[in-house]
């Protein structure tokens, strides 16, 4: 008996969708924030990584209710690692847009 069968695939997928939703909003908001702060190059990416990890940590603690491995098959990897690269384009887009809007209006 492997423990894989104890998970329902539909529920796992819906949990992932919820995490994705949180990460979508977080990356857009972080993009806007770093645009407003007119961060450049590495500082912006640092803000992104730190901010997203913070949001992921909150998700881990609040939504996971202390037993996150009930909701995800490999919680650490899925919550903290896999979203970082996938949400990068959304962040970069918002960052560029808001940066352009803010920096040229001087």
């Amino acid at each position: 008996m492997n423990t894989d069968e104890a998970y329902s695939n539909a529920n796992i997928k819906s949990n992932k969708d919820k995490l994705q939703h949180v990460q979508d909003i977080t990356s857009l908001v972080l993009g806007i924030a770093s645009g407003i702060l007119t961060l450049e190059s590495i500082h912006g990416f640092l803000l992104y990584v730190i901010g997203l990890t913070l949001a992921n940590g909150l998700f881990y603690v609040i939504c996971g209710e202390g037993k996150i491995d009930k909701y995800f098959k490999s919680p650490i990897q899925e919550v903290f690692v896999s979203g970082i690269v996938g949400n990068m384009p959304g962040f970069v887009m918002m960052w560029c847009l808001v940066y352009a809007l803010v920096s040229t209006s001087a």
Binding site: H21, D24, L28, P89, G90, F91, V92, M93, M94
Partner: peptide
Amino acid sequence: SWYFVNLLGLRPVYSLLACQ
């Protein structure tokens, strides 16, 4: 290039607008 950045980065915007 703004077009390309949009092309890559609009997925979260769509998913928020289209109720995921």
